[in-house]
């Protein structure tokens, strides 16, 4: 996919996530569309540009969510790098892998956040509160992954047809 298309997608995900959380929160949560996009970029792009997108999206989420600037950005960069590594082993079109992706990246993002909170000693006793939300967040992200990833894969194939073989041929699982 081309950079401007990713920029448009990033802004769309940002609005969708914020709109969902403001209008239709489920247990106070919403699918993490921006995190899904970062994961998809990690799985398919592997490039430096994706890193900057992950960082920028994280900073934007921090600003809009009221979290300390940098917290989400760091979590997204860790997710992006992890997804590059995962793409060497798994096939992005595999549904079991997409389910695994939703679970792992949600847990990874939450763990990174917990690690940062612990590092900065911001508020004691928040760990159980954050951990309690993980199953719901995984479930929401799982549904979002199963809907969003096929759309993103089709978009990727449609906008850059030559890349399909290059990206998806090294099937390991």
């Amino acid at each position: 996919m081309q950079g401007p298309l990713y920029f448009g997608l990033a802004f769309t995900m940002l609005i969708l996530e914020n709109l969902w959380r403001a209008q239709w929160p489920i247990h106070g949560l919403a699918p993490q569309f921006t995190l899904l996009l970062v994961a998809f970029m990690g799985l398919t792009e592997h490039g430096l540009a994706g890193l900057f997108y992950a960082f920028g999206l994280g900073i934007a989420m921090d600003a809009l969510a009221g979290t300390v600037p940098g917290f989400t950005a760091v979590a997204y960069i860790i997710t992006y790098v992890f997804m590059i590594a995962a793409s060497k082993l798994f096939w992005v079109k595999s549904i079991p892998f997409q389910i695994l992706t939703a679970a792992v990246m949600t847990s990874l993002a939450v763990t990174s956040r917990l690690a940062i909170l612990w590092f900065y000693r911001l508020e004691r006793g928040l760990g159980p509160e954050i951990l309690r939300d993980i199953p719901w967040q995984i479930l929401l992200n799982l549904v979002a992954v199963l809907i969003l990833f096929p759309i993103l894969i089709r978009l990727d194939e449609a906008t850059d047809p030559g890349r399909e073989g290059e990206l998806f041929s090294s099937v390991r699982w």
Partner: peptide, 27 residues
């Protein structure tokens, strides 16, 4: 970028301004 992110967080927490100029620009 991770170090930069942590730097933003540290400086925001030090100044007690949890949005920062970057956050205000984004908003």
């Amino acid at each position: 970028l991770v170090i930069l992110g942590l730097h933003f967080a540290s400086s925001a927490l030090d100044k007690g301004d949890e949005t920062g100029w970057l956050g205000r620009t984004v908003i």
